[in-house]
Every structure is written in structure tokens, then in C-alpha cells.
Design a protein around this nucleic acid. Structure first.
Length: 382
RNA sequence: UAUUGCAGCCUUCCUUAC
């Protein structure tokens, strides 16, 4: 039985979800541990409903399986369900509390995270770090730093979160300073610093770091690729890409967005049509490329007729484009179409529409929209 | 009865005006 479990774990942790499902299905006896692994597998492959169904079919759940279900919800972005599950759990372990902290942090509820953090019976390095991350990821760097300084111990993850916090507010100098004095580092630290350089346009320093990094993974390569692509050095990005030991969809899309942002539309189109694989992000980049070139009808055609699948970003892109040069009437029309297509709006959706109101000078539409946020969509205007 | 059954960090697409 344990060799089955070992195989299942190996597939699950390496991202081979289909293989994991096959192994699980053919297991003669399914232990609780096997079920628990599968919760994560289903959640990671976007099948949260299946995960929950499986969870409900478990007769004797323990804390570990409850926690796994909790983090499955968090991972899929369903924070309301995560909260409900957390409230109905028979007991809260350190892992449960840290998972819920993470959920609050990811949904921008810093105050609720802090309240939970304060009333936790026991702390762990994970809960401390999750709280620091809650501050850092929501732009509250001074609070993050203050809590970070109070931590009893630091590991690489804790340092990395502070590093990433500085990087995200574009404080590259502070990030570099921290990077140099970090006591614990790992591969993610280097990758985070690469991204910090890329974001602030410091491409040369980025390349120097990339070259001296002892270990690199695909994220490192993609970060370097992005440094070139986002800073107008499309030829360099292509050259780097050609020498990459491996690539994935992120690599292709990074390159594509380099063409879309810096070159003529034909470059992006050429690359797009030659891509061996495409996903919804690739299509979103193309949609944006049409829009950027003022081809609103072309962009609309991509969205409504050509895309094999869309997500909320596709619609938001189009809404933002129409907001700026398509007229508020068309914005509203497209939003209605979005609802008809069953696509759930998010906060950015409303910002895109408010942007249109701004351009049109229409206070009334904007006001109605903000009201309907609460009433029709159950959202809290930020 | 768990060196790998669960928890925190990094890379691609949408908004952040003046």
C-alpha cells in the first residue's frame, strides 16, 4: 500500500496530475492519505468541485484532510468557502490557522488576518510568515518590516517575502540591500531579485545576477526572459529563448508579450501563429495587441468569435479598451454580454468600467455601478 | 502512524487617472 502512496505522491508533487488520478483510480485500497493527496491534485488542476465531492465522500476525516480541503479552497481562490469550512472544522491546528491567515491575506483582508493572528493559541514560523506576507502583499511594508523584526527565527521564506515586498513597491535599492544581508537564501531569493531588477528596468544587473546564480530553474530563465521582453529588448529575449534548456507556456507568453508591446502587430501575429501551444493568456496578449493598435473590431472578434476559451482578464481587457475609446454605451453592452456568458466579474472589471465613466464624464453610471457592486454582486467597493 | 498525506515565498495576460 505504501508503494502506491509513494507513486501517487511523486506524481502529485511533480505536477503530473493526470497520472496521479490514474494511480488513485487503480489503487486496490485507498487510504485516508491517498484521499488527502487527491484533494490537492484536484484543486491544483482546477477541479475544486471534484475535490470537495471527494472530501465529502470520506467517512473518517482527520485534521490533515480537513486542512487539505481548506487549502484547496484557498488555492482555488474561493475564500468564502474556505472561511465556511474553517468555521465548521472540528479543531484548528497550526496548519489550519496558517491556512486561514493565508486566505485572509490573499483576499486583501489584512485586518481580519491580524485578528486571527492575535488570537491564535500558538504561533509558528509559518503563521508569523503568513502575517508578514499579509502586510507585504497588501503594500503595508512598514508593518511587514516591524513584524518581521519581531520574529523569533527567520528562514529563507521569511526573508524572501520581505524581499518580494520591496520589489513590488519598486523599492529596488532596499531590495538589493536586503538581498545582500539575507542570512538564509534559496533559489526563490535569486528569482525574486531577478524580478525586482526586471521590473525596475535594471536589465544589466539582472543579467549579471542571472549569470552568477549557482542554481537556476525554469522560473529563473523566464524571469530573465521577462527582463528583456518587458524592457524592449525583444531580440535579446529571443536569443535567450533559443538557448533555453526547457520552456513552458510562461516562456512562450513572455516572448509573445514582448512582441506585442514593442513591435508592430505583424511580429506578434507571426509569433502567435507559429506557437506550438497556446493558452488563454496567449490569446489575451493577442487581444491586447489588436487593441493597442487601435483595431477595436479585431479585438472584439478575437474575444467573441475566435478564442477557444476566455477568462475574466480577457473581458476586462476589452472593457478597458472600450472604456478609453469605444464609448460608454459599448462598455455597458459588453458588460451585459459578459454576464450573459456567465463570466464572473472581479474588482478589476469594475475598475475598467469606472474608467469608462471617467472618460465619458458620467457620474450617474458610475454611481449606479458602485451601488450594484454591493447589491447585485455581493462585493465590497474598495 | 508517516525522511513525501495538509500550511507560508519567485516567472507570462486586465485596472491603478490627475
Amino acid at each position: 500500500a505504501s508503494s502506491w502512496l509513494r507513486m501517487l505522491t511523486a506524481y502529485a508533487s511533480s505536477g503530473h496530475f493526470e497520472d496521479a488520478k490514474r494511480v488513485f483510480d487503480s489503487m486496490p485500497e485507498k487510504s485516508l492519505a491517498a484521499y488527502t493527496i487527491m484533494l490537492d491534485v484536484y484543486a491544483s488542476s482546477g477541479e475544486i468541485d471534484k475535490a470537495f465531492y471527494l472530501f465529502n465522500s470520506i467517512e473518517e476525516k482527520d485534521t490533515v484532510s480537513w486542512n487539505a480541503m481548506l487549502t484547496a479552497f484557498v488555492q482555488s481562490g474561493d475564500f468564502a468557502k474556505a472561511r465556511a469550512l474553517y468555521d465548521s472544522m472540528p479543531e484548528h491546528s497550526l496548519v489550519s490557522c496558517a491556512g486561514m491567515l493565508h486566505a485572509f491575506a490573499s483576499s486583501g483582508k489584512v485586518d481580519e488576518a491580524k485578528a486571527l493572528f492575535d488570537k491564535m493559541p500558538q504561533q509558528s514560523i509559518v503563521s508569523w510568515t503568513a502575517m508578514v506576507a499579509a502586510y507585504a502583499q497588501n503594500g503595508q511594508i512598514p508593518k511587514a518590516k516591524a513584524l518581521f523584526d519581531k520574529m523569533p527565527v527567520w528562514d529563507a521564506v521569511a526573508w524572501n517575502i520581505m524581499l518580494d515586498g520591496y520589489a513590488r513597491v519598486d523599492n529596488t535599492n532596499e531590495a538589493k540591500k536586503l538581498f545582500d544581508e539575507m542570512k538564509e537564501t534559496n533559489l526563490v531569493s535569486g528569482n525574486t531579485m531577478l524580478t525586482a531588477y526586471a521590473r525596475s528596468g535594471r536589465v544589466e544587473e539582472c543579467k549579471i545576477l542571472f549569470d552568477v546564480m549557482i542554481k537556476r530553474n525554469l522560473v529563473s530563465w523566464n524571469a530573465m526572459l521577462g527582463a528583456y521582453a518587458q524592457n524592449g529588448l525583444v531580440d535579446d529575449s529571443k536569443l535567450l529563448f533559443d538557448g533555453m534548456p526547457a520552456w513552458d507556456m510562461v516562456s512562450l507568453n513572455t516572448l509573445l508579450s514582448g512582441y506585442a508591446e514593442n513591435g508592430p502587430l505583424t511580429d506578434a501575429k507571426d509569433f502567435f501563429f507559429r506557437m506550438i501551444q497556446k493558452d488563454v493568456v496567449s490569446w489575451n496578449v493577442m487581444l491586447w495587441a489588436f487593441a493597442r493598435n487601435g483595431l477595436l473590431d479585431g479585438a472584439l472578434k478575437v474575444l467573441l468569435d475566435e478564442m477557444p476559451e476566455t477568462n475574466v482578464v480577457s473581458w476586462n481587457s476589452m472593457l478597458a479598451t472600450l472604456s478609453q475609446r469605444g464609448g460608454l454605451g459599448n462598455v455597458v453592452k459588453l458588460f451585459q454580454r459578459m454576464e450573459m456568458a456567465g463570466m464572473e466579474p472581479n474588482e478589476t472589471t469594475f475598475l475598467c468600467i469606472v474608467l469608462g465613466c471617467n472618460y465619458a464624464g458620467s457620474v450617474l453610471v458610475a454611481r449606479d455601478l458602485v451601488w450594484s457592486l454591493r447589491g447585485d454582486f455581493g462585493m465590497k467597493p474598495s
